[in-house]
Simulated assay, not measured.
Amino acid sequence: MKTKLSFYALHLCLCLAFLFLPYAFTSAKTIFAWPDLYSNVHDRIYFFIYFSLLCFFYFNYYYLIPRYYFKNQQLLYFIMIAGFLLFFLWISRFLDHPDHNFLDFRNHPKPFLNHPNPFEKGIKPPPHFQNMRPGPMSFDAMGGPPTQYGHTALVYLLGVISSLLFAISSRLQNVEKEKMKSELAFLKAQINPHFLFNTLNSIYALALKKDDKTPDAVIQLSELMRYIITNANDEVLDLSKEINYINNFISLQKTRLGNTVSVDYKVNGNPFGKAITPLILISFIENAFKHGVNPDQTSEICIYIDIHEKELTLMVSNKKTFSIQSETGIGLQNTIERLSFLYPDKHQLKIEDSHDKYIVNLTIEVG
Rank of each mutant, 00 (worst) to 15 (best):
S6D: 00
H11G: 11
C13G: 15
L21N: 07
A24C: 12
F25P: 01
A33R: 09
A33L: 09
W34F: 07
W34N: 01
Y38R: 02
V41L: 12
I45G: 00
F48C: 08
I49K: 02
I49R: 01
L75V: 15
L76T: 12
M80I: 15
I81P: 03
F84T: 05
F87C: 13
F88D: 09
L95D: 06
L103F: 15
F105V: 15
G122Y: 04
K124W: 12
P125W: 04
M137A: 15
G144W: 00
T152H: 11
A153N: 12
L154D: 11
V155H: 10
Y156I: 13
Y156E: 11
F166Y: 14
E176W: 13
K177D: 06
E183L: 07
A189F: 09
Q190R: 11
F197M: 09
I203M: 00
K210L: 02
K213I: 01
D216M: 04
V218T: 09
Q220T: 11
I228F: 02
A232C: 08
N233Y: 05
D234N: 11
D238H: 02
S240C: 05
S240P: 02
E242T: 01
E242F: 03
Y245N: 05
N247E: 07
N248Q: 10
T255D: 11
V263E: 05
D264R: 13
V267A: 08
G269I: 10
G269L: 07
L279C: 10
S283T: 09
F289C: 10
K290P: 12
D296Y: 15
D296G: 15
C302E: 00
E311K: 14
L314E: 04
S317D: 08
T321F: 03
S323K: 14
E327D: 14
G329L: 13
I330S: 10
G331D: 12
E337C: 05
L339H: 02
K346E: 13
V360F: 08
L362A: 05
T363N: 15
